[in-house]
Amino acid sequence: MPEEVLVVVGDRFPQFAANRGTVTASQLLERLRSGEVHGPLRLAVGQGLLPQQLAEIEKFAASGDGTAVCHGGVPVPAEHRVVRPGHPPTALIGRVERAAADRFTAPLLLDERVDLLQDRLSSQHVSAITLLEAARQTWVTVTEQFLLSDEERATCVISEVTGVRAAYHHYVFPLPATVEFRLTAHGKVPAQRFGFTVSFHQNQRLTTEIAAEIGVLPEAVAKKQEALAARQALHDALAPLRAAQPATAADTHPGGIPA
């Protein structure tokens, strides 16, 4: 039987899955479970699959009967604790690994429950805002897992993000893709600052670059800075009201008698 080669994508990409050479996760698993696949099936895992679907595909690939072989393996989602504490379903990247002192990589790994994917249900490509969120998750993960000391990790927060610049060179489709974080600057005074570029690559081609800087502060300082700014903003908002002439009874109760 001839070998079949397919990219499996999440059910949320029906438009893209209409292309020859693709299969949705549900369709693939139905075929594998029913034993309908008799010949060798070579798979690449694209975007938008649920963790359970990834795990089930891995189980079939690991069974060793040669029915399903996953090219590049089945990616593992990043730890949710880091990327979205309290929001487990929405990690957009896989496990981050250090490739060099200043370079880190992860698979792009969109989960079909990602709210942002709703934006592009009628399109074949992954939306720009989804990539921006994947970039944000990447810089949070790299900072917390690799750039901060143990003590800083316990006491500090990313307090500001500045200078975000994005360049979208090519569409990203729900196919395998990688995310690369490259550290471009690091300052420590008066607070830790990291400059970086997060780039997305698909089919060995650079598709998207997002550069930014973040500031990392002790949480107590960040909270105090925010509290001072909040009180000042409230004060400024109330100032015109305080300066206004008191309302007359006629203003307050036009045509009537004040209570």
Binding site: P190, A191, L217, V221, K224, Q225, L228, A229
Partner: peptide
């Protein structure tokens, strides 16, 4: 604003 926050703490 950052240094002021530190100062106040």
């Amino acid at each position: 604003s950052l240094l002021l926050a530190r100062l106040i703490i």
